[in-house]
């Protein structure tokens, strides 16, 4: 754990070395998030509620989603790069160290832009999420579980590159898909799509379920969320470990 924290410290220092670009990227991300908030405010000017979701609930969902994104894509920025890194043979450095390569890779890079989300999410929660002590605790729990699901999912689809080859395009598509699906209230989706959101593209666990928990704590829902977090996290680790057997270190044998 101490090793992970030290690595993490270096990543933060590295992100911080170019201060100008740091603040620029963070403010761009904040502006981006504000546009989305504006979208929802405008949307609910015209539409009162959609299947039980009103403005304040959707803003709560958005606060959780940005927090989750800040953790999984900002702090653990390599989570969505696993496919690219494997295809490009860039796991070598991590494999030469006596720690788990996945743990090292995840904390190895911080994405400055997406750190903006990590500021934005909690601030939005404080402003629009009616924070009480209890709600705040659930907000944190839900965001952490959501982040575990998202990181596990991203690592898993990235690690697929080790099995199917290519340069990780499927991971990019999966990444964009899960984020956009998680940006909208889970209940607007019907039948098959909804089933998908609870299984193979687990967007519901990233934002929808945590939001529901903050508004209405149910032990069963909480247990389901926690289970999903464990399942997806271990799925990511498992697939990555298995994939390492097939890692080819970027050896360029095509057209040899």
């Amino acid at each position: 754990m101490r090793i992970i924290l030290s690595t993490f410290k270096n990543s933060l220092i590295e992100a911080w070395t170019n201060r100008r670009s740091f603040w620029l990227q963070v403010s761009i991300m904040l502006a981006n998030d504000l546009v989305w908030v504006l979208f929802w405010i405008l949307f609910f000017e015209r539409v009162s509620t959609v299947r039980g979701w009103d403005r304040s609930r959707v803003l709560l969902l958005f606060a959780i989603l940005t927090t989750v994104a800040g953790i999984s894509l900002g702090l653990l920025a390599n989570a969505r790069k696993i496919g690219q890194l494997s295809a490009g043979g860039e796991l070598d450095a991590a494999l030469a160290l006596p720690i788990h390569p996945l743990a090292f890779l995840l904390v190895r890079r911080v994405d400055t832009g997406l750190l903006g989300d990590l500021f934005f999410g909690p601030i939005l929660f404080v402003l629009a999420g009616e924070p009480t002590l209890e709600r705040t605790a659930i907000f944190i729990f839900g965001s952490l579980c959501g982040a575990a699901v998202l990181v596990g999912f991203l690592v898993a689809i990235g690690a697929l590159t080790l099995f199917i080859g290519g340069t990780g395009e499927q991971a990019d598509l999966g990444f964009q898909t899960i984020l956009i699906l998680a940006s909208y209230p889970v209940d607007v989706f019907g039948g098959a799509t909804k089933l998908l959101l609870f299984t193979s593209v687990p967007a519901a666990f990233i934002s929808g379920l945590p939001t529901r928990l903050v508004d209405d704590w149910q032990w069963t829902t909480a247990a389901a969320l926690l289970t999903a977090a464990l399942v997806f996290a271990s799925l990511g680790v498992r697939l990555f470990n298995l994939g390492l057997h097939r890692y080819s270190s970027g050896a360029r044998w095509t057209r040899a």
Binding site: F43, V47, S48, T49, V50, R51, Q176, T177, I180, L181, S183, Y184, D187, V188, F189, G190, T193
Partner: peptide
């Protein structure tokens, strides 16, 4: 994916 998302959103919104 975008089509799925927005068609679902607008269907729900217009129904409501």
């Amino acid at each position: 994916v975008i089509l799925v998302v927005f068609s679902s959103l607008w269907r729900a919104a217009t129904q409501a």
